[in-house]
Write a protein that binds this DNA or RNA. Structure first.
Lengths: 137, 137
DNA sequence: AGAAATTTGTCCGTATGTATC
DNA sequence: AGATACATACGGACAAATTTC
């Protein structure tokens, strides 16, 4: 059905078709796209070509891919404003000892300590934050 | 956090984190690790991925697994000396969220959170302090 | 003794990531 | 572009061992 795109790489043609389906809600926001294998069959292309098309849409921010799950059309695309900074799952940094840590470690308050912070999320919701403090070695 | 393998596979990242906890006595020698399901929740991974991480540590000889019981950190790994005793202290209390915790949990700064603090000592010296933060449910 | 809950063991199917030809 | 192979990852289901009440 899509208009022929002569002279265009196959993956671009496929990307356009998928973009159109998302824009026209043939693929609903938040729902899974067909698997790469299924799309390969439908478009009579190899999985590699399908993956290039998907990669293009992912770079446009239209879709999100999860390892072992599949590729989703992004939900509520016209909302997420800026300032929504993403916190890394785990990070290490130096912090200065608060009064309690200073007492525990037997150092002066303000002394640099190594802090590792791990964030565990579930369904976009932060479940637990773990902060581990050690001496600088 | 699923998604592509940037660098290391997830199960190896998880194995590293667990190894670190064992090395730093966050998980004490001879004690049970959290169940595979609990770890799956904490790390937002499937049980299969957790099992791969555990398998890696088991091959390193760091832990031992028993069917129906759980997985233990190996006791007396490097008996460098006799009086190497560890005395963890734990306490729970409510604290008010600092700016970063507020962002992570999506609450107003100053909101009360539950903090669990564990102190692991060795030979009178504080080795590590772990602070775990959760919502008040 | 027995039932229920918990935890690890195993197997299946499906999907994506990556490398190679 | 296409094809294949293997690694990584998810999720469900059930069995087996153990603990708890």
């Amino acid at each position: 059905m899509p208009t022929p795109h002569y002279g265009q790489p196959r993956y671009r043609v496929i990307a356009s078709e998928l973009r159109s389906r998302i824009d026209n809600y043939v693929i609903l926001p938040g729902s899974l796209l067909p698997s790469e294998s299924a799309l390969a069959t439908e478009f009579q292309a190899s999985r590699g070509t399908i993956r290039k098309a998907i990669e293009a849409l992912r770079e446009e921010g239209l879709i999100v891919t999860e390892h072992g799950r599949g590729t989703y059309a992004k939900p509520n695309r016209n909302r997420s404003g800026p300032g929504v900074s993403i916190q890394p799952e785990a990070q290490r940094r130096q912090v200065s000892a608060d009064r309690e840590l200073a007492v525990l470690f037997g150092v002066e308050p303000g002394t640099a300590l190594l802090e590792e912070q791990t964030v565990a999320r579930q369904g976009g919701l932060t479940r637990v934050v773990v902060r581990t403090y050690r001496r600088l070695t």
